[in-house]
Design a protein around this nucleic acid. Structure first.
Length: 429
DNA sequence: TCTGGGGTCCTAGGACCC
DNA sequence: TCTGGGGTCCTAGGACCC
């Protein structure tokens, strides 16, 4: 099935966060391990042992504590610094295998394999070589799915992970129609990329429950029922490539920074600290993107899970008179917004900022009312430089506060082994 | 006690214009 | 009694992804 002549590989790391932890702590091998979300809230990565216990993705940790005690589940706080660095190492290796790589998320990439068939005995051999090298050089297990469309390569990857007969690499281009039909008939339609819970339910009303029945559905009819996206998905399932590789990621359209608090926050000064801190982070990302923003959205909310508490959530968008990436001006706007939405008497659980109307800094429009501020750019360069070279929070605005009593929980975080000299792993003789 | 964070795309509906 | 039609733009909300 190579109707379009395209061939894509999807390389996906197995249980990525858990596998990263195991590289540096081999004692975790073979044990049930979860990595928790920010604030140690939910299980966002599960080892196979934990999946076998029936723990779903996103399960709240506090609900798992009994099960954890019973089976000795190890729970780790997330260590994004480590995961990001490990991810970069994997992606660097993948670029050796194909000149066309789309880094799709922290743990998966699409590779275009067009024209590479001649270099290898088979696509399967190429896939195995990728697995072997990533395992040897970075220590992480990956699986590879190969198919004539991105949507199919996702499914191929799923099969590579679940079906031992593929040994970690599933090349759909070598399967017969009958074999494809057999695998796809056994797969829930919800496994298809782009089919979530709601759409799966609606598909079910039409008698479409498996990947195979969606593949057999008429694309034009799917368009009438669900829109252009589903029509595309349907065509992709038939081996007609509709989604191309996006090698250069387009500039972001918005940047969000938000966190749940480690404790309930009632005092306005603590909310101000949190919003200032989140804004510092968002502004840093903005400058890294080489963009400036034209508006800022601030929001606060109480704990929606505590129905017995008085609930309040609100947000406000503050347009800026002039697009900027200066943390100080953005923080001032955010704190102004916060004053407008803050209501006393509530226990707040979360706050955040969103940067909107982003444009590249090169198209900055001169303001009618202000001279261009070159000093601002210099100050931000110094700020970013210090925080890059000496660690985050070396230099920050006083409004971010010092104690940060509200900051999130991370009670069991591993060292940043690969990015901090003072946290390098040590080898015992 | 304890329930994540950061994105994108599409669509429907309202405002507005001629 | 009778009350256009078509187009664009914007926004909010929903759905999806990892």
């Amino acid at each position: 099935m190579t109707a379009s002549g395209k061939v894509y590989a999807l390389v996906d790391c197995n249980n990525f966060y858990v596998s990263c932890e195991r590289v540096f702590n081999p004692a975790l091998e073979g044990r049930p391990v979860v990595v928790l979300s920010n604030n140690d809230g939910c299980a966002v990565a599960r080892s196979n042992e934990v999946k076998a216990l029936g723990v779903p993705m996103g399960a709240p940790w506090f609900q798992l504590k009994d099960l954890a005690k019973q089976h000795g589940i190890v729970a780790l706080s997330s260590n994004y610094t480590l995961y990001a660095d490990m991810s970069n190492r994997v992606m660097t290796i993948l670029r050796d295998f194909s000149p066309h790589v789309e880094v799709y998320s922290i743990d998966e990439s699409f590779l275009c394999l067009d024209g590479l068939a001649g270099l290898w005995k088979s696509y399967d051999a190429l896939g195995q070589a990728i697995r072997q090298r990533v395992r040897q050089w970075v220590g992480l297990p990956v699986c590879v799915g190969i198919a004539p469309s991105k949507t199919l390569s996702k499914l191929a990857n799923h099969l590579a992970k679940k079906k031992p007969e593929f040994n970690g690499v599933c090349d759909l281009t070598t399967l017969t129609e009958a074999e494809l039909c057999r695998y796809f008939s056994a797969l829930d339609v919800g496994k298809v990329w782009g089919v979530g819970r709601q759409i799966a339910k609606r598909l079910s009303y039409l008698g479409i429950d498996t990947v195979q029945t969606l593949r057999d559905a008429e694309p034009k009819l799917m368009r009438q029922h669900f829109g252009v996206v589903m029509e595309r998905t349907c065509n992709e399932l038939r081996g007609l490539s509709c989604l191309s590789l996006e090698e250069v990621l387009p500039p972001k359209k918005q940047i969000v920074s938000s966190r749940s608090f480690g404790t309930m926050v009632t005092r306005p000064d603590e909310l101000r600290e949190a919003v200032s801190s989140y804004m510092a982070r968002a502004a840093e990302k903005l400058r890294h993107e080489r963009s400036i923003c034209g508006a800022i959205h601030v929001f606060v909310q109480t704990n929606r899970f505590r129905q017995q508490d008085a609930q309040y959530h609100n947000g406000v968008t503050i347009p800026l008179t002039e697009a900027t990436s200066d943390t100080r001006r953005m923080t001032a706007a955010a704190l102004y917004g916060l004053r407008r939405i803050y209501r006393p008497g509530y226990s707040y659980k979360k706050a955040g900022v969103m940067l909107l109307d982003l444009i590249p800094e090169t198209v900055r429009q001169a303001s009618l009312f202000r001279e261009p501020d070159e000093r601002s750019e210099k100050v931000m360069q110094v700020l970013d430089g210090l925080n890059r070279d000496y660690g985050r929070n070396t230099l920050y605005l006083a409004s971010c506060g010092i104690q940060q009593r509200w900051s999130m929980l991370a009670q069991n975080r591993s060292p940043r082994y690969t990015t901090r000299w003072d946290e390098l792993p040590t080898a015992k003789a």
